[in-house]
């Protein structure tokens, strides 16, 4: 079975800017794949390359084994949920959802039926006669999803689809999207700058920075075993320790990552450090330590005693938790 999407040494340059730079990428059929990175890292350009809105400067792209260079977006069996939803303001919800089928010449009765079914699927039954302007942000997002899914695309592209929603709605949609994706079995490619969103939803994640993929792997791999300082820092804000400090903590002279929640404060054993600050986060308290001049964050679960600022404490971790990243990470 061919890959759902495969990039071979794909680059997209805009003048001197290398938006995407020699990217290799393989997405398996039926996978929920997240592209994660800060803004300007090239993740959205990659999505647009799959959709066909951009053409690669060099390299080769295949979708389900078929070469797509020179194939316009309207001939790719791929659909997109846009960041701003891009609902047609002059059409009602039902006509928006039925747009793709109208273009393909599906009969009126049939596409109305399909549109209503798709609206039911995104929990908006009976909304067909409303105009997009009368819907809330969350509802528009669902309509955009229905409009894309009703065409049964081989790949569904989602460009920061939850970015404009408030926290509660976002968490609810994350859950629903995951359920929907498993039920439909369609390959989802999801672009986000929110690492927790990527970690909670995706089967696999590609972390982007400056037009390149820094690391690809399952959420667990990305989180536990970051390959570079950038990944460690960007995903879950780990403590990134330079070789000198790693050595002081009993490791080899390599860059290392130590997750704040993996550090325990201990009265008797472990390394000594001074508390420089503490901030209450709700479910935990973040305590900042000074270790040989380096800042080290520690997440202290709620209910434990929080040490005073300036106090001297001891801290420790399980040997596995100090993740080594080599000398030039």
């Amino acid at each position: 079975m061919p890959h759902a999407v495969s990039f071979q040494q794909v680059s997209r340059h805009f003048g001197a800017v290398r938006a995407v730079d020699a990217v290799d990428l393989e997405i398996a059929p039926g996978e929920f794949f997240a592209m994660l990175g800060p803004s300007g890292s090239g993740k959205t350009t990659c999505l647009r390359l799959i959709a066909g809105f951009e053409q690669p400067t060099s390299g080769h792209i295949e979708i389900f084994g078929e070469t797509v260079e020179g194939v316009p977006p309207y001939r790719r069996n791929v659909n997109t949920v846009f960041q701003d939803y891009a609902l047609f303001p002059h059409l009602n919800v039902a006509d928006n959802v039925a747009y793709g089928q109208m273009i393909r010449g599906v009969g009126k009765a049939e596409r109305a039926r399909n549109a209503e079914a798709a609206l039911e699927m995104v929990k908006l039954p009976g909304y067909g006669s409303r105009k997009p302007g009368q819907l809330s942000g969350g509802q528009r997002q669902r309509v955009a999803l229905a409009r894309a899914l009703v065409n049964k695309p081989k790949v569904l592209l989602l460009d920061e689809p939850l970015g404009a929603l408030d926290l509660k709605l976002r968490e609810q949609m994350q859950e629903e999207l995951k359920v929907l994706q498993k039920a439909l079995g369609i390959t989802f490619v999801f672009v986000t700058h929110d690492q927790s969103e990527a970690l909670s939803m995706a089967d696999r994640i590609a972390v982007f920075n400056e037009g390149r993929i820094m690391q690809t792997g399952t959420p667990e791999e990305i989180y536990r075993r970051p390959k570079t300082r950038f990944v460690a820092d960007f995903v879950g804000s780990s403590n990134v320790l330079p070789p000198k400090v790693t050595q002081q903590l009993g490791g080899p002279a390599e860059w290392s990552s130590l997750r704040p929640e993996d550090v325990r404060l201990d009265a008797v054993s472990g390394h000594e450090a001074r508390v420089t600050g503490a901030s209450f986060l709700g479910s935990a308290t973040r305590v900042t330590l000074d270790v040989a001049g380096e800042k080290l964050n520690v997440l202290l679960p709620s209910g434990l005693a929080v040490p005073e600022q300036g106090a001297s404490v001891r801290f420790s971790w399980k040997p596995d938790d100090l993740h080594l990243m080599g000398t030039d990470a």
């Binding site: 959709a51 066909g52 809105f53 316009p72 977006p73 309207y74 001939r75 791929v78 659909n79 997109t80 846009f82 960041q83 701003d84 891009a86 609902l87 047609f88 303001p89 747009y99 793709g100 109208m102 273009i103 393909r104 409009r147 894309a148 065409n151």
Partner: peptide, 23 residues
Amino acid sequence: LQGSLIEASMDLGADGFQTFRHV
């Protein structure tokens, strides 16, 4: 006019002329 509307139309299978006519 939102720039993404034209892209959305093409994404949903409409070519240039269809996009002009319908969007």
